[in-house]
Design a protein around this nucleic acid. Sequence first.
DNA 1: CTTTTGAATTAGACACATCTAATTCTGTTC
DNA 2: GAACAGAATTAGATGTGTCTAATTCAAAAG
Lengths: 258, 258
Amino acid sequence: MLSDVMEDYLKAIYVIESESGPPVATSEIAERVDKTAPTVTSMLETLEDRGMVTREKYKGTELTAEGRTVAIEVIRHHRLLETYLAEHLDYSWDEVHEEADALEHHISEEFERRVAEVLDEPQADPHGDPIPSAELEPPTGGPTVPLSACESGDRIVVARVSDRRDEDLAYLADAGITPGTTISVRDVAPFGMVTVGVGDDEQSLPESVAASIHVTPADHADEANADEVHAGEADSDEVHADEANADEADPDATGAGA
Amino acid sequence: MLSDVMEDYLKAIYVIESESGPPVATSEIAERVDKTAPTVTSMLETLEDRGMVTREKYKGTELTAEGRTVAIEVIRHHRLLETYLAEHLDYSWDEVHEEADALEHHISEEFERRVAEVLDEPQADPHGDPIPSAELEPPTGGPTVPLSACESGDRIVVARVSDRRDEDLAYLADAGITPGTTISVRDVAPFGMVTVGVGDDEQSLPESVAASIHVTPADHADEANADEVHAGEADSDEVHADEANADEADPDATGAGA
DNA sequence: CTTTTGAATTAGACACATCTAATTCTGTTC
DNA sequence: GAACAGAATTAGATGTGTCTAATTCAAAAG
């Protein structure tokens, strides 16, 4: 059996791989799990022994198929829990993350099944992140772009919001911006804040807040509900995102922000 | 912060104190938590340093007020979870224990509050054990006696069923005997099996199964529902239990079988 | 090709929870 | 009251996950 801690490392590696592709740097993992680099090195050795990762010394680390499956299962637990807490225990979308982090390692397969069943196999959690299926294939969120890659005049719908920073979530909850919210982009300052229209209001979002929002275009007559933003639609192709912020690029579309 | 493991020790000590009163023997704790005696000794030293227990070397251990409060909180978590799983996630009463054991250390205060709220501050879990209040005072189950202390002809209602042994729970679930079930005692073999009537059936319960059942008399016109067996009633006095099985006595009535 | 620099690893230590084996204590039996 | 039996503790070791300090490496810059 893998410990909770090992699962946390695997989850972190999975997320980083999803965002920037393998191989994953030790320092990146260290930052995510909030441990020192030597600690991470030694854990990576353990995980390698357990067949969860492969690595090249001084180069980087990559998940094995097995390690990836474990990571996806943890993420499924996390997102099912977030969704359950929001829908059945009256948690708001900016409160669920911490609780889910604490519980995700301790629920049984049976619990997972039953939660998924009462939720009717949900496709996305309250942050808009896609929930991996019970078969644990890598979830593919629909194509989305960072809000910062939009340009003035765009009408877009919020697809997902990073669950990493509590302050930003609270800010957005307060601003009435949640997955599914349709907004108009008024102004995008390079590397800076983004001014948007939400309903009748106009809001200026600080950079860190803007960076946590990913969006899809609001056009294709698809004003459907937020839970379906990530559903099918493998057809819809890339949203225009001129190369101004190419360094901030987004090779994921796998929605791994656990 | 106390570790999960420490909480498990405190819970075990609390249960033993409830069953046999302090001081608690190291070997008893060792058996409950399934560790060796030296391991327990060293943990008890730690818990003493933390102010959770007091002890006299070679004699025994006792919870401090603080240790007791921690234990009661863990037990509250456990029983709220058991109840929630049974009522909202379709678990049967003999499945809930293991899941609750895994989760009880990891839920937040907030989670505890919300679960208690949606359950409407339940008084007893699916096994019939009383759920400590949010104020964490020691729960007092109403007076109950072991089934083995009854005699032929008694009509009684099952108050609670030990959650310690899965096999016995499954047996009882199969036999249709759950908290709230009214049964007639046909025959009590000294130190042996108990024959009872349940509805129209007659059943012979093996000793271990009979030992896990605690009952109250079915008389006082109180055919109320099982959840209220433990409610108020500090008035009703001791049930007749002649001293045949006095060694198997039951000084608890605090319902500590977490 | 050498140097530099920042990242990664190795070295060595520590806290925690656990074990087995050896010792010490307590309460009981003769 | 001496001896014994059983329980508890002490002694010493192990595995895991973590740290800081020292070293080694690789990739970039000269």
